[in-house]
Design a protein around this nucleic acid. Structure first.
Lengths: 113, 113
DNA sequence: CGTAGGTGCAACCACAGGGTTGCACGACGA
DNA sequence: TCGTCGTGCAACCCTGTGGTTGCACCTACG
């Protein structure tokens, strides 16, 4: 339960269109759904849905500016997920080493090779 | 193109069942599809499909042992993806700072606040 | 031998979700 | 005030894929 929204972030990042959307946002720094729709080969509505998912995952934030809504990147969630993955990788290594070590010490003493 | 199989890893990691599968594998260190099927509430066939996807993403590796196939965790791809995400987060920060700075210098000189 | 445990293959079902279109509503500029 | 631009909402289609069942095949083990 301690992980931020790792599953949400992973789910959001799993879609290519969403990643392209994030790229476009990174390039513009800030943009409305309609503006982003001009960059990608999908309809504005599709973009809006994707943005909703990305915002839900904490990867972007929205702010109303007059009659339009500006979206901005939010690196925090991404960074947190990266950390989570790195620590998981470390965990795997520790786990596997421990098991391998135990197997060697438990199974092989009479038969080193 | 330089990214390992980031999209494959993200796609693989996006599914909850697959993450549970990886957890189970981490606990056992090494296991066959049938053994893993005992841990999860899905059929062996479903497990096999997931394992195929995970192997495709480089998150696990398989090795035949007699009449069964043993699967093992592979932390490398996970670690690489974690690094990719972290660098992406850094990229976003740099991008946003640059843009914000430019906006302030270009728009606000007469109006600091 | 035969039997049991483990895989592999294939067909099939059902639902989530990525995508679209259409329309109504609110805000800005002339 | 009117036109227009950007949103929001809703219905709808259709593919992908997570899941299942059934069966054939192979390998160990008695």
């Amino acid at each position: 339960m301690s992980e931020t929204g790792v599953d949400a972030v992973l789910g959001a990042l799993a879609d290519p269109t969403r990643r392209a959307l994030l790229d476009a946002l990174a390039a513009r720094g800030q943009a409305s759904a309609s503006a982003l729709a001009a960059d990608l080969p999908v309809s504005r509505q599709a973009i809006v849905k994707h943005l909703a998912i990305l915002e839900e995952a904490g990867l972007v934030s929205s702010a109303r500016a007059g009659r339009e809504v500006r979206y901005t990147l939010r690196s925090q969630a991404l960074d947190a997920t990266a950390r989570w993955m790195a620590s998981l990788a470390g965990e795997w290594d520790r786990r596997l080493n421990a098991i391998k070590r135990a197997a060697e010490a438990d199974d092989d003493p009479p038969r080193p090779q």
